[in-house]
């Protein structure tokens, strides 16, 4: 694999290989010595032009546990604040011999564009409202483990509801594209004001009535409501949003037995997810966080762990 820019670029074999290797990587988390020598001598630069704690930290830990040297560049401390263009910053670091860039940027498409400038590998850690491939992979990883533990493994026939602010979410697109490859069915649930334009062309069922799909889904993936959006008039009040689209206790009780609850975090308890749902036995919220490092280790391994030519053997 050269870059990871979109989950839509992954073949079924590649996607499954990433999830399988992540299983092995997760074991490392439980060892006294949390370190593999695999990427010794490789340099990974995390370039985050947008705030992020969990994604940046987990990429940094993932690189370090594989023995790569990881360096963090944030927009504030970098030359971009002096007016240097993204392209020049990247070319400068590329010229220093960096092996991979992990990039988060507020503009959709910026990461894919950057990948065209450099010799190094590029991982998209979230670009604008476009994609966040490693989040979708870790969602899939946590969901797969959940259903495996229940003896109900397999994507065929599974229904995943993605609920909330689909318009501003980069997680949703990556999940839709990944599941197009893996095989689960996706139902998109959002108030009409928060549906992206062109959503009908995504090939998923779309509804604004959360209650109508509750009983039929295997996974309820709740997206964060960005409070700052309220000013934009997308919905009247947090209360009203919670009434229509929050995973309340009442809705939690109507889910199928064993249905999983996901949330990419950070959560607004009482808005898109109730405390009862967030802390429920079948809530995968913390599993998702734990999976973050393992999945990102697997992604870095797939990009940097082999020779630069050729595909997965």
């Amino acid at each position: 694999m050269r870059h990871l820019l979109s989950t839509g670029d992954l073949s079924l074999t590649e996607a499954e290989a990433i999830l399988d290797v992540a299983e092995e990587m997760q074991q490392v988390q439980t060892r006294p010595v949390k370190k593999l020598p695999t990427l010794r001598g490789r340099t990974i630069v995390n370039m985050f032009f947008e705030d992020s704690t969990r994604t940046r930290t987990s990429f940094e830990i993932a690189g370090k546990w594989l023995s790569a040297d990881t360096i963090n560049v944030s927009a504030k401390g970098s030359s971009t604040s002096k007016g240097e263009s993204l392209r020049d910053t990247m070319l400068t670091l590329d010229a220093m011999g960096v092996d991979a860039f992990v990039i988060r940027h507020s503009s959709s498409g910026a990461v894919a564009q950057a990948a065209g400038w450099v010799r190094a590998h590029v991982v998209n850690a979230g670009d604008g409202q476009h994609e966040h491939p490693t989040q979708a992979l870790l969602d899939a990883y946590a969901i797969r483990r959940h259903f495996r533990a229940l003896g109900r493994e397999g994507w065929q026939g599974k229904r995943i509801a993605i609920v909330g602010d689909l318009l501003h979410s980069r997680v949703v697109r990556s999940n839709v594209l990944l599941q197009r490859t893996l095989g689960a069915e996706i139902v998109l649930v959002a108030p009409p004001t928060l549906l992206p334009t062109g959503v009908e062309s995504w090939g998923c069922e779309v509804t604004s009535d959360f209650d109508s799909v509750l009983e039929g889904v295997d996974v309820a993936m709740m997206l964060r409501v960005q409070r700052e959006r309220m000013a934009g008039g997308f919905f009247p009040t947090a209360r009203e949003y919670a009434d229509g689209y929050g995973l309340s206790l009442e809705r939690l009780n109507r889910l199928k037995p064993g249905a999983a609850i996901c949330h990419p975090g950070p959560m607004n308890r009482g808005v898109e997810i109730s405390s009862e749902a967030a802390d429920a036995a079948n809530s995968l919220v913390l599993d998702q966080v734990a999976a973050g490092v393992a999945v990102r280790m697997s992604v870095l391994y797939h990009l940097l762990g082999g020779s630069d030519e050729g595909e997965t053997a």
Binding site: E24, Q27, L36, Y301, E311
Partner: peptide, 22 residues
């Protein structure tokens, strides 16, 4: 004991699949 991640020739081959350690 899977030793894939400890091989000294990883860079000479396409990415290898990792086996299980238990």
């Amino acid at each position: 004991l899977d030793i894939t991640m400890y091989r000294d020739d990883l860079r000479r081959h396409p990415t290898r699949l990792v086996g299980r350690t238990s």
